[in-house]
């Protein structure tokens, strides 16, 4: 499987991506917004990629490397996680290296992954969440056409601090609105 957009290629993670992804997974500005542990040990990156691959083989997760066409560099990951074939639902997760922020790469990648989820996989619903303090992610989520569905107060605890989480959802019937712009 491989998806293409104007500037990106999206394809299942491979173990060789560990070299590009390790610095991203250890950037505190990236992990501040994620549930990843910090620091992320180098030897665990390959194991994590292997577990993603195993889950991909059984259609439980789709973790895609986000590759820049111009440089061939893997700049981040865009995933459909917690895929439920019973409920035809999944959760969108993404993260990308700081040098590539602010250029619309996440929006471009996520839009393609959503299209894949709804049109190829036949999902009914995709949800996405972000910490309430993560305004950049919220902007991306709204640009993608997600509908705000609520705020779970104090849902996560990181280093002793509780975080509120914003929850968003997109239904198959919403995607026509999202792809309109």
């Amino acid at each position: 499987m491989q998806l293409k957009t104007d500037r990106l290629i999206l394809r299942p993670l491979e173990e060789k991506d560990a070299a590009d992804l390790f610095p991203v997974m250890n950037d505190p500005d990236v992990t501040a917004n994620l549930l990843l542990p910090h620091p992320y040990p180098a030897e665990k990156v390959s194991a994590w990629i292997r577990s993603c691959h195993a889950a991909y083989e059984v259609c439980e997760r789709y973790d895609l490397a986000v590759v820049r066409k111009d440089t061939g560099q893997v700049i981040g990951v865009c995933s459909l996680c917690k895929v439920s074939w019973e409920h035809l639902s999944a959760e969108l997760v993404y993260w990308i290296g700081k040098p590539h922020w602010g250029q619309g790469f996440i929006t471009e990648a996520a839009r393609k992954v959503l299209e894949y989820g709804f049109l190829e996989l036949g999902l009914e619903r995709v949800c996405v969440g972000c910490f309430a303090c993560n305004t950049a992610s919220r902007r991306v989520i709204e640009k993608l056409g997600f509908i705000y569905e609520g705020t779970a107060r104090g849902e996560y605890k990181k280093l002793g601090v509780r975080y509120d989480t914003l929850h968003f959802g997109m239904l198959r019937e919403d995607i026509t609105n999202a792809s309109g712009d």
């Binding site: 019973e86 409920h87 035809l88 639902s89 009914e124 619903r125 949800c127 509908i147 569905e149 609520g150 705020t151 779970a152 107060r153 929850h167 959802g169 239904l171």
Partner: peptide, 20 residues
């Protein structure tokens, strides 16, 4: 009441909304 997840659960073939 913190929100509603639309069509988050399929029961007997029907997609149901869930209150959180």
């Amino acid at each position: 009441y913190e929100g509603s997840a639309r069509h988050a659960f399929r029961k007997n073939g029907e997609f149901l909304d869930i209150f959180l």
